[in-house]
Design a binder for these strands. Structure first.
Length: 236
DNA sequence: TTACTAGCTTCAGTTACTTCA
DNA sequence: GATGAAGTAACTGAAGCTAGT
């Protein structure tokens, strides 16, 4: 019943289809066609997804015995001492591409900053980079990836919500159809000769042949059921 | 005013690397 | 120790915006 309450307090405004991407920020004015799943749902879970997600994979790992361990340990120490940036190579374009593992402290500060604003201007980026002993480019990349993770997480939450809502509507549709059939048979009993033409409420074809995005499939699989997978036809 | 260009930013998609079971 | 999956830092390319010419 908690779900019911949640639904009751929720405004649903959704659409699935192909449309022009509507820019949400001044600097985000791409006008390309994208597949969208547009929801205006104030979900508690959404907030959680944004606040509690990402980068939580214990980056402060002290294990490992490769030569890189030295770098990580050095970096950990360095970030504590604010001496080294732990960055390998002089170029941003690092062809060796040895990956830096950000320290716990660095991630904490990045996360805190991200909670305040998900994009940084040049000054903010520079300042943060100095505080973290990283290059501005690294801060920029982290924010890019963080935004991507947030978006993915949000999409998963939205898909999950849509799935539940669809199931709820399907159930209601079944119930109403059943009720209709019962009423029709009752009317038939009373007025056998003048039977009105029967009509049925059907689930829209498009809804019945929804193609699941990867995120939804993931969620569905992780829940162990059939995931509410409904057909395989592409959306039109 | 319009057209072009350079420099910047963002995003989506991908790659490469690390960690862990 | 080998291996595959998951997580994520870093890269690439496309596209939009702005300022300068």
């Amino acid at each position: 019943m908690e779900e019911d309450d949640e639904l009751c307090n929720t405004t649903l405004d959704l659409g699935i289809g192909l449309k022009k991407f509507v820019p949400q920020r001044d600097h985000d004015r791409k006008n390309k066609h994208v597949f969208f799943l547009d929801l205006s749902i104030p979900l508690h879970s959404s907030d959680h997804a944004i606040e509690g997600s990402g980068s939580g994979s214990g980056s402060d790992s002290g294990s490992g015995s490769s030569s890189l361990k030295v770098n990580f340990e050095d970096h950990k120490q360095a970030s504590k001492d604010s001496v080294s940036n732990g960055c390998k190579g002089d170029e941003d374009r690092n062809y060796g591409r040895k990956k830096l593992r950000l320290s716990k402290e660095q991630i904490t500060l990045l996360e805190d900053t991200f909670k305040q604003h998900t994009t940084l201007n040049t000054v903010q980026k520079q300042t943060l980079a100095e505080r973290l002993n990283l290059k501005p480019r690294q801060v920029e990349v982290w924010f890019q990836n963080r935004r991507a993770r947030t978006k993915l997480k949000q999409t998963e939450v939205d898909c999950e919500f849509l799935k539940k809502h669809f199931e709820r509507l399907s159930e209601e549709n079944r119930r109403l159809n059943k009720e209709l059939v019962e009423l029709q048979s009752a009317v038939k009993m009373e007025h056998p000769p003048q039977t009105p033409p029967p009509f049925f409420i059907q689930i829209p074809k498009a809804a019945a042949t929804l193609t699941m995005c990867q995120s939804c499939e993931k969620v569905g699989k992780s829940r162990g059921g059939d995931g509410g997978k409904a057909g395989g036809g592409p959306l039109t």
